[in-house]
Computed example of a mutant assay.
Amino acid sequence: MSLTTVPSGEQIWLLLGPLSLFALVTSITPGPNNIMLASSGLTFGFRRTIPHMLGVNLGFTLMLVLVGLGLDTVFHQFPWLYTVLKYVGAAYLLYLAWSIAQSGPLDGGRQRSQPFSFLQAALFQWVNPKAWVMCVGVIVTYTPQTGFYWNLILAAAVCCLINLPSLGVWVAFGAALQKLLHRPQAIRLFNIGMALLLVASLYPIAQDLIS
């Protein structure tokens, strides 16, 4: 059947439940985006972290659509490009971990650094290993070939709607800690803990290097 065939209502409902559960679990569990958002929420507050949060949400949605529309074929033709992107992303995550570990509290009413901008957060998705895993998982498992393009639009919409409040939970968690962590040393220790979790998220890539 054609890729553009409109799926039936029954097919959509059968897909919607599992897809929503997948989107929720992968969006709300710890990963580079959520760890960075929690740290940003603590350091800069919820309001100043909103552009970062929206950049992650819309950047991932666009990435999912582009990969689904055929960008993955580029990596099949040039597998080395995916490998390069993966290790560049790992190196960038290490840099971000170092930056988070160095982040401190408010200093005389001014921030020691700036939160991620919308564009920075959106572009970061292309070097985020978890974002790639989520994209591949959605496309392979939840976008049947019958009516593929319609299913891709549905998958992107579901992921976008579920992903945003899931990210907001992590920002709110970090922002809430501002009321509990008043001492600069406590904030520094929290950020160091987030940085270590970010480094730990690179475990699968480390395994590839060792094996």
Rank of each mutant, 00 (worst) to 15 (best):
Q11C: 05
Q114Y: 10
K86G: 08
Q185D: 13
F116A: 06
S8H: 04
L154C: 06
C159D: 11
F190E: 00
M134E: 04
G55A: 09
A90T: 09
G55R: 03
G55S: 11
A90K: 07
L94W: 00
I50A: 07
Y149I: 06
V140D: 06
V127A: 10
A131M: 02
R110W: 10
F190H: 08
G31T: 04
I28C: 06
T83W: 07
P79I: 08
V140Y: 01
M194F: 11
Y95Q: 09
L21W: 05
G193I: 10
G45C: 07
M63Q: 11
Q178H: 08
V84D: 09
A90Q: 06
F148T: 01
Q111L: 12
L81G: 11
L177H: 05
N128D: 07
L16K: 04
L180G: 13
G104I: 11
N191S: 03
W126H: 10
L181M: 13
L69Y: 09
A23E: 00
S103H: 10
I35P: 01
I205L: 15
L94V: 12
G55I: 04
Q125P: 06
V133Y: 02
I205G: 06
V138I: 15
F46R: 15
Q111N: 14
N33P: 07
Y149N: 06
L69T: 10
A90V: 14
L164K: 07
M134D: 03
N33A: 05
A131G: 09
V158D: 01
V67W: 08
F22N: 09
P32N: 03
T83F: 08
L123N: 01
L209Q: 02
S166T: 08
L85V: 14
H76V: 15
G9A: 14
A91L: 14
I210W: 15
V138W: 02
V199Y: 03
W170N: 03
I162H: 02
F78T: 12
K86A: 15
F75S: 07
N191A: 04
Q207N: 12
L54E: 05
L152P: 05
V199L: 11
P184A: 07
G193A: 14
Q178P: 10
F116Y: 09
L15S: 11
Y95A: 10
V171M: 05
L94H: 02
F116M: 12
S27C: 04
W170M: 07
Q125Y: 03
M36Y: 01
L93Y: 02
L71W: 07
G45D: 02
R112M: 12
A206W: 13
I153V: 14
C159P: 03
W98S: 14
G147W: 00
I205A: 12
T29N: 06
Y149Q: 02
L177C: 04
Q145Y: 06
P18W: 02
A90M: 14
F148D: 00
L14H: 13
L119I: 14
L19A: 06
G104H: 11
R47S: 10
A121T: 10
P79N: 09
A172P: 05
A90Y: 04
W80V: 15
L167W: 01
M63T: 05
P115S: 08
G9F: 13
T49D: 05
